[in-house]
């Protein structure tokens, strides 16, 4: 038996759904418009803005940089975040309560401030290569996701399992890899996806840390829009959308989307 929904609820829900989805359709429409400027509804249909992306080398190079930064930055964040989350959960009683919040600071601090302070303290004072600074900035930006999401997974992990393994003769470090990690893998994958997407989409931190010759895709989109304001922007956005939907489809097929929101 189906319970019927209240009409007001149906209307509100539909409206919210429409508001969420509408911009995506507008972008989709704008990306195929046969005009030299961004417009909606599209005037005529063409795919030349999609081919245009590949003719502008800056899109290709920045896309590669973005992927590299997102992959390496996320990996770095997990490398720090997983042990941190483990320690925060394992020794919760012995650690001060504010410590866990330290790892959320990069989310709480306005990203623009984070970017600016990294520019001042790392790029200028240490003079590190742009790529390295960008990588560190992104790792810091996504670290909270690694710590929080892996931490949520560890919160429901029964640490007596770890003790059982140790009592059976498994050394502590090996126990972490053979017993703890396999049981929090869902959290690690979720953290990876969230961090990866956050890094791919970031503008504010990257804005300060990109430098001569090295930029990320969102920054390139921004720059291109300022100069040309043509539908190329919309077509790049469509490609990014397809990428995101693709990742989500894989997640849904393998793990189920609900585990991202758990």
């Amino acid at each position: 038996m189906r319970t019927s929904l209240h009409p007001a609820l149906t209307i509100t829900a539909s409206l919210i759904f429409a508001i969420l989805v509408a911009p995506l359709f507008i972008i989709l429409g704008a990306s195929v418009s046969d005009t030299s400027y961004l417009t909606f509804p599209p005037q005529g249909i063409t795919l030349r803005w999609f081919t245009n992306i590949f003719e502008i080398s800056a899109f290709r190079t920045t896309a590669i940089t973005s992927l590299q930064i997102a992959l390496l930055g996320t990996a770095l964040a997990l490398l720090i975040g997983i042990p941190a989350a483990y320690a925060l959960n394992r020794f919760r009683i012995r650690l001060p309560s504010w410590l866990a919040n330290v790892f959320v600071l990069p989310i709480l601090v306005p990203e623009i401030v984070l970017g600016f302070s990294l520019l001042k303290s790392v790029t200028i004072s240490l003079g590190l290569p742009v790529f390295i600074v960008l990588l560190l900035g992104h790792a810091l930006l996504v670290l909270p996701y690694a710590v929080r999401v892996v931490g949520a997974s560890l919160a429901s992990f029964d640490f007596s399992i770890e003790e059982a393994a140790i009592s059976l003769g498994c050394p502590p470090l090996k126990t972490f890899f053979t017993v703890v990690l396999p049981n929090i893998s869902a959290g690690v994958i979720a953290a990876f996806i969230l961090a990866f997407i956050t890094s791919m989409n970031d503008v504010s931190v990257s804005l300060f840390l990109t430098g001569p010759g090295i930029s990320t895709l969102p920054i390139q989109i921004l720059a291109h829009m300022e100069q040309f304001f043509d539908p190329t922007i919309a077509s790049v956005s469509v490609l990014l959308m397809i990428l995101t939907v693709g990742v989500m489809a894989i997640v849904e097929a393998t793990l189920g989307l609900t585990f991202l929101t758990k």
Binding site: D158, S160, I161, E163, A164, A165, S167, V179, P182, N183
Partner: peptide, 12 residues
């Protein structure tokens, strides 16, 4: 050999 209250079996 240890036997725990909550069994502590390896779930995986």
């Amino acid at each position: 050999g240890l036997v725990f209250q909550n069994y502590a079996l390896f779930p995986h």
